[in-house]
Structure formats: structure tokens, C-alpha cells
Amino acid sequence: MNNVFVYIELENGAVADVSLELLTKGRELADTLKVKLEAVVIGENLAGIEKELAKYGADTVWVADDKIFAPFRTLPHTAVMCGLIEQEKPQIALFGATPVGRDFAPRVSSALHSGLTADCTQLVIGDHADPKTGKGYTNLLYQIRPAFGGNIIATIVNPDHRPQMATVREGVMRKEEAAKPHAGEVRKIDWQKFVKDTDLAVKIIDRQIEERKINIKGASVIVAGGYGMGSKENFQLVHELAEVLGAEVGASRAAVDAGFTDHARQIGQTGVTVRPKLYIACGISGQIQHTAGMDQSSMIISINTDPEAPINKIADYAITGDVNDVIPKMIKYYKQNSK
């Protein structure tokens, strides 16, 4: 009881990276709180899935295995999660901030009247005193996230409601196997108790899911373009530099919103978090929304016409100049000097 829950998301039958990252963080939280880490898997053909989850620290693996659970649908997953939480009363429940987690975790929180913080960038255990009543709380989950378009960092707590729920984006937390495998004891969820016929009302008619082609998370060099690239046509320059350097292409949210490139390339709080060896920011102003997803890069080069652009505060090299001028020169001098 009062353990830490992690909802395990499946991608083509395999455990999603974000869920392993959450288990790694969940293990750390459970150790601090001296409680168990429990994984919750809802899907089909799940035999043996506990082995990988145990490696990442799961003491218990709750399983609801039936064809009605795959592909993911909101209502049956919500019903199972709510039923199990009411039965087991975890103190913390973590979800990936993926299309799945962001779809059904709010529903779970609404049904249970427990607070949910979206897109956390840090999760820490700490104490809290209510500023009005002075009432003290120990061992709460600090849910830390940028807010207000990334202009502030907020620490959120849920003093009086359980579970304390949070979503975290893929790549934000580190993924690391536990020092030694944990028990990963399988326990079947008595899901028939929780799922009603009306939960099956929404039908999936068609699904077109592509393999992930873009892998910016694993790239050692990233060339990223921002709104300052000016246009979709001009964004091509970012691709040209990336190709010459053998790098992946990333983008800021402003560039994605403006339609310069795909959402899959978005780096930042509402996109992917990356830690490459080299990050070249082209025409990116550097709002915290973006820098939260790349400030762990080993080296940062910024190209911006504005010498005061916030990105320059975290850059190792700040080039003041026009991307249309600087990028072709970088290509030229890289080609001249390599090999």
C-alpha cells in the first residue's frame, strides 16, 4: 500500500522508452520513501513482460491482459487504472506525457479527484508547510515544470489528495537499469470488476502508425532551426548543414508552429529532450520552453542576429549574424577542413 505506480506504455508490443525512464525515476522515489515500485501494464499478449520491468526496478508488475486493451482506448484503460488505484491506494502515480498518457491520465485524475501535473521536468521528494494554515506535510512529491510559456518554473504539490499524479515527457528523465533486478512479481488485475460495457463504446476503425524515422534523441550532433529561419524554404538551410555534418535536424516550437518542419523534430518542454555532443541553434531566441530540452548539450553554438538573444546566455559560442550568411560559410569551411 501507498507505493509508487508507473503506468507502462507499449509501442508495438514493446515497453516504451518513456516508461523505462519513469521506472528509473520511480525506483529512486520509492527508495527515498522506503516503499515499493509497482508497474501497471494494460494491453494484450503480455506474458514475460515483467522481466524487462524488473531490470528497471519494478517490485510488482500489475497486468491486465486482454484483446480489448489493444490498441489503447481511453475508457477501458481509465476504468482499469482507476479501479486498481482505488484498490491499492498508491501515493504517487506517474505517466508518460505521450498522446496516450496525456489522453487518459487527466481522466483518471478527474475520476479520483486527485491533482495531476503535466510535463514535469523534475520530480523530487520534499516537505511542505501550508502557507495559510501552517499545517506541515512530509515526503510530498514536488512536481516541477516550466509554465506560462516557459517564463516561469513552478513547483506544484498535492498536499491532501492521493495519488499525487504527474506526466513526464520522453527523454526528460534518464533511463538506467537498477543496480540489481527487483522481484517483478506478476499480479493479475481483476479488470472484469472495473470495465463496463459502455467503456467499449468508442471503436477504432483504422490505424496508420509509421515507424519512428526521426531519431533526434540519439543524435550526437543536432542542428536546430527556429522562427528566425524565416520560412519553410529557408529552413532547408538547416537540413543542408545537418547533412554535411552528419547531424540530425531539430527545431524550436515556434518553427514547428509556423509550419517550417514536423512536430517530431521539436525540441523542448513540449517536444523531445536531447543531450548531444554539439547543438547548433540557428535563429532560435532561446526561451526556457526550448532550452529546457537542450541545455544539457555538451557544447552549444548559437547563430542569431540579436547579440542579446537569451540563447547566448547558455551558448559556448555565440555567433552574431544572419543565418543566411553564417550557415553557408559553416558548410564551406567544414568541407574545406575535414578529411
Partner: peptide, 16 residues
């Protein structure tokens, strides 16, 4: 509201 804001920090970039 079950969630309470414990702390708000304005983002001030630390110059490097």
C-alpha cells in the same frame, strides 16, 4: 484544486 503552487521562480538566465 488538489494541486497547489508551492513556489514560482521567474526564469532569469544565468549568464555564462
Amino acid at each position: 484544486s488538489p494541486t497547489k503552487v508551492k513556489k514560482i521562480e521567474n526564469v532569469v538566465f544565468q549568464a555564462k
